[in-house]
Write a protein that binds this DNA or RNA. Structure first.
Length: 390
DNA sequence: TACACGTGGAT
DNA sequence: TATCCAAGTGT
C-alpha cells in the first residue's frame, strides 16, 4: 500500500468532526485556515463559529469595519491575520467583482494567504492537486524519511515540500492534505508519539533508526526581549482615555490606556514622575493653571495602608495640570513569542477642570472601553477590575 | 533571510 | 518555572 492510502485509511477512522469540514464553501474554508494559522483547534473553533455567525459570506466581511473585525478577533493573537482577512475580503468584493479566487496561484495574491493556505484552500475547495505543507505535515515527512535538514530553513522547506508533492494523492488532494495534517496532529505528535500503534511504523525511517524524538530539526529562535510598560488609567470627569496603536509593533490597530515604555522596570516611587512626564508635560495652555493656585499639590498619593510608600506633595507648578494617583498596581507579566512584557496600571485622577486630551487620545466612558479591540493584557486587567473594583 | 507577530496549553 | 509548540505570513 502507498503511504497516502495508509494515512487516508487512518484518517477515515480517526478524523475529528470539525465545523469547517462540513462545507466546501471556499470562503468558509479560507476563514478556517486563516484562523488556524499557528493556532490550536481548541482555541480557534469558537472564533470560527463567531465569524461565520457574524460574517456568513464574504460580502458581510467586506462590508464590516476593520475595527469590528479586529474586535471579533480579540484574544486570538497575530492580529495582522484579522487586518489581512478584512483587506482580502475587500480585494475580492471590490477588485474581483466578488469572485473568490479559484486557483492556488490566484489565491496567493490575497493578503494573508501564503503557500500553505493557498494550497489548502485550492485542494479542499477546488480539488486542485497541490500539497499543503503545515507544521504537522513537515513533522510527518521529516520522520518518515529521516530528513534532518532544519525544517524552518528554505533548504529544509524545499526538501519537505518536494516529498509532499511526491506523496500527494492527485485524485483526492483535499482529502489527502487533511489526512496528512490530522495524522500529524493526532498520531505523529511532536512529543512521545505512539509509534508502536502507528500504521506507518514499518515504513518510517526515523522509527527504524530510533530518531523519532530528534525529528524534525528546528533552528532555535531569537532571544526573548523584555519590555516594561506603565499604563495610565485616567479618570477625568467620569471619562477615561484610550489611544490606538498605529506603529509597526505588537498589537497594531488595537487600543490601550495611554502608555509610557521604559528600558527597565521602574520602582514604585518613580511612578509619579513618570505620570508627571506624560500628563504634566502636555502643553500648558490646555490646562489653564492659574497663579492663585500656586502652592497647591501638583500631585498626591492617596492610600489607606500605613506601610505603603508616601510621596511628598511638591509645590504646584504654574500651568501644569493637577492629578492624583490613587493606585499603582503590582507589575503584571505578559508573555509573547519574542517578548516578555511587564506592565503596571496606574490609576490617575485628573483634577484640572480645563484638561483637554491631546491628539490621538479618545475620551470614552469607562464602561465603553470594552467595546474597543484590546490586547489580552488589558482585557484581562479589565476583567480583574470588574471583579474587584477600586 | 532572519525575524517579528499573540495566545494558551502541554510537558 | 522555562520552554516549546499550534492548520504561517509579511517584511
Amino acid at each position: 500500500m502507498k503511504i497516502s492510502e495508509i494515512i487516508t485509511g487512518w484518517y477515515k477512522k480517526n478524523r475529528r468532526s470539525l465545523p469547517w469540514r462540513a462545507t466546501r464553501d471556499p470562503y468558509r474554508i479560507w476563514l478556517s485556515e486563516v484562523i488556524l494559522q499557528q493556532t490550536r483547534i481548541s482555541q480557534g473553533t469558537a472564533y470560527y463559529q463567531a465569524f461565520v455567525g457574524r460574517f456568513p459570506d464574504i460580502n458581510a466581511l467586506a462590508g464590516a469595519s476593520e475595527q469590528e473585525v479586529i474586535k471579533l478577533w480579540q484574544g486570538l493573537g497575530y492580529y495582522s491575520r484579522a487586518r489581512n482577512l478584512h483587506a482580502a475580503a475587500r480585494q475580492v468584493v471590490g477588485d474581483l467583482d466578488g469572485m473568490f479566487p479559484a486557483s492556488r496561484d490566484e489565491l496567493l495574491n490575497l493578503k494573508g494567504i501564503g503557500p500553505y493556505t493557498a494550497a489548502a484552500i485550492a485542494s479542499i475547495a477546488y480539488n486542485e492537486p497541490v500539497a499543503a505543507v503545515d507544521g504537522n505535515v513537515a513533522r510527518v515527512i521529516s520522520r518518515l524519511f529521516a530528513i534532518d535538514t532544519p525544517v524552518n530553513t528554505p533548504k529544509g522547506e524545499k526538501e519537505i515540500s518536494g516529498m509532499a508533492e511526491t506523496l500527494l494523492d492527485r485524485d483526492d488532494p483535499g482529502e489527502h492534505n487533511q489526512a496528512m495534517m490530522e495524522f500529524g496532529a493526532l498520531q505523529c505528535v511532536p512529543v512521545n508519539p505512539d509509534c508502536h500503534g502507528c500504521p506507518l511504523n514499518s515504513l518510517c525511517r526515523a522509527f527504524a533508526e530510533d530518531r523519532v524524538a530528534e525529528l524534525p530539526v528546528k533552528l532555535k529562535k531569537a532571544k526573548i526581549k523584555k519590555r516594561y510598560f506603565t499604563y495610565m488609567v485616567i479618570s477625568h470627569q467620569k471619562h477615561t482615555y484610550i489611544e490606538r496603536r498605529t506603529s509597526d509593533d505588537i498589537w497594531k490597530e488595537l487600543y490601550q490606556f495611554p502608555l509610557t515604555e521604559h528600558d527597565t522596570l521602574p520602582k514604585e516611587e518613580e511612578i509619579p514622575g513618570i505620570v508627571e512626564a506624560r500628563i504634566g508635560a502636555l502643553p500648558e495652555m490646555l490646562f489653564g493653571g492659574t497663579p492663585h493656585e500656586l502652592g497647591k499639590p501638583r500631585f498626591s498619593i492617596y492610600t489607606h495602608e500605613q506601610d505603603r510608600p508616601q510621596y511628598s506633595n511638591e509645590p504646584h507648578d504654574q500651568g501644569k495640570p493637577r492629578f492624583s494617583i490613587h493606585h499603582i498596581s503590582e507589575p503584571v507579566k505578559h508573555q509573547l513569542t519574542h517578548q516578555l512584557i511587564t506592565a503596571r496600571f496606574v490609576h490617575v485622577e485628573i483634577t484640572e477642570k480645563g484638561f483637554r486630551a491631546p491628539v490621538g487620545w479618545e475620551r470614552v466612558p469607562p464602561e465603553k472601553v470594552g467595546e474597543y479591540p484590546l490586547p489580552r493584557l488589558i482585557d484581562r486587567y479589565l476583567e480583574m477590575e470588574d471583579g474587584a473594583p477600586g
